[in-house]
Design a protein around this nucleic acid. Structure first.
Lengths: 168, 168
DNA sequence: GGCAATTGTTGTCGTCAACAACAATCTTTC
DNA sequence: GAAAGATTGTTGTTGACGACAACAATTGCC
């Protein structure tokens, strides 16, 4: 709403490559990025921000953020995992996972069950409500994924997933 | 587990797909990610974290973080830009840019010059010290970029840059 | 039995995106 | 030319997130 309406979102950007040393002026505002264009990290960061914003927006009606979704997905696929295992798998601090689970448990999507074999740890499970909710989340996430496809192209997305498979 | 020179960069990840319904157990801990593996956002996020950590570490000796580097690069390539223009170009909140510039100005890398034509805005320039410093930063950033190449492969990085060119 | 390691938890700190509000300064409009 | 509206830089707040440190309860090791 606040932001100016203008700005065509469609950025073809076939960036033909200017000569070489010349400061390649960028289409958007006539501001050149120069060296920045050659940095993978910059492109990845901008892309990641775009993806997350679309994810948050697409799953907005159910109020689920990317991290929450990843937690629910892992628990759904591996019931009974400990918090430590989930945290390690997702690369989340176990301290942070505590708050995430507090929230998800309050919403009755997840339950912590005291482990009999190791009384320190909790076995994580989805509630029945959590199962059906996750099913809906997955449908919305698939919709989000189609947005990604529409943005970068079908086979580009495929190739991207292949390139980054090791980080999954 | 810090450096991990790991030559195993070439992991085409032929994750050929286990059967179908079976929870494809992942190598790491035997914890399946299931649906998460098909989400571009998850892979991109993990990759972005890896990239930033390597960037921060590689540019650690000069204490420059990715965002600071991007700001310096844009100002270096386009001297005289206003804060608003830089913020818009990099997708940074102008509120946030204020603190970034405060820091960079304290370190005598950047200077804000009152614009004569528009007394609201500041024209941003690198100091002489900032110029030479940026040259060094760029060398270190190039080294970081080589780390990325070593991690995902040369042509994979190229392809990645091409796929995400619109976000640059 | 004693000591180190692990698990969940609490708390702090710093980064970062998203807003809101404000003073100073253009810009537009009447 | 003055009033109304928009823009620029600034300050402050909020909330998500990663990195640590410390702690109690529990387990594993010797």
């Amino acid at each position: 709403m606040t932001a100016s309406v203008a700005r065509a979102d469609n950025r073809p950007s076939p960036r033909k490559r200017a000569g070489n040393g010349a400061a390649a002026r960028d289409a958007a505002d006539g501001v050149g990025l120069d060296a920045l264009a050659g940095h993978a990290g910059y492109a990845v960061r901008r892309f990641q921000i775009w993806i997350f914003q679309d994810f948050i927006k697409t799953l907005g009606e159910v109020d689920i953020r990317p991290t929450q979704y990843s937690v629910l997905t892992v628990i759904g696929a591996n019931p009974g995992l400990s918090q430590m295992a989930v945290a390690k798998r997702l690369g989340i601090e176990r301290a942070r996972l505590v708050h995430l689970l507090d929230s998800l448990e309050q919403r009755k999507l997840v339950k912590r069950i005291k482990s009999k074999t190791d009384r320190r740890s909790h076995a994580l499970h989805l509630t029945a409500q959590g199962e059906t909710a996750l099913a809906k989340f997955k449908r919305l996430a698939a919709e989000h994924e189609r947005h990604v496809e529409a943005k970068i192209g079908r086979e580009n997305r495929q190739h991207l997933l292949r390139i980054l498979a090791d980080f999954t």
